[in-house]
Design a protein around this nucleic acid. Sequence first.
DNA 1: TTCAATAGTTCATAACTATTGAACTAAGGA
DNA 2: TCCTTAGTTCAATAGTTATGAACTATTGAA
Lengths: 128, 128
Amino acid sequence: MKPLVHPTLRDITVEGILHALSDPVRVAIYADIVGSDCSQTCSNFVNIVDKPVPKSTLSVHFKALRQAGLIRGERRGVEMYNVSRCSEIDGRFPGLIAAIVKAHNIQSEETRTPKVKPGSLKKRRLER
Amino acid sequence: MKPLVHPTLRDITVEGILHALSDPVRVAIYADIVGSDCSQTCSNFVNIVDKPVPKSTLSVHFKALRQAGLIRGERRGVEMYNVSRCSEIDGRFPGLIAAIVKAHNIQSEETRTPKVKPGSLKKRRLER
DNA sequence: TTCAATAGTTCATAACTATTGAACTAAGGA
DNA sequence: TCCTTAGTTCAATAGTTATGAACTATTGAA
């Protein structure tokens, strides 16, 4: 099986990070990985949003997060464990990851307990 | 001519912001608008990156920034003036915009004065 | 060693999104 | 009025993404 590729810190770009996290599924996965203190397998995230994410799609999302330099993946047997590279990234772009994850959490919290009357938002965020 | 549409603060999403700023031309335009104290017309940005940006493309990019809620545009005669909505956004997602613009500036600075051997970077950013 | 189960990847294709030249609109002069 | 300038829209094309189906790789059990 092909070895996993991870960009060096220098090859990580702001645009790449923002693009990777501009997808609702990927930002949810990433916020979860950043917030957890142990590494996580792909299939933990099948139900990260309301609708189950197909495993081929999950695989593509994890590849996108790896290639953006946001996570590091390691195969262990049949599974793959993923950890965040946020402390590395923080050395180069201080505060960036924290601000994005915080904003994501604020938004998720709003969606979970909306201040406006439920259903009045045109596009509810977790729908696809 | 069609009136400009701007989302309300509530309708702005983190994903929308990240997507809008995941394009190298748009993030450069936006960082410039945030960093300047007066409003800016579209055509000021034709040479924001090394290669001139066609005006139809610029128009689409400004529409994307407006629809993401990042800027507010106002037609004045034949021109359009644009200002950042960062203080509004900061009320909802504190520190997000500042962190992204700062990271963009760090990256631009690195590219302008590379630590690695000159010429080894694919895309050098020209100064304006 | 063979089989089955499990985790993840690859491929093909369909659906979507982005770029841009050309034609257009609208405003402000001369 | 006609010209110029600023920006928009359209249409063609190029590029990207999502996902079911088929695949590989690893593990454990029989």
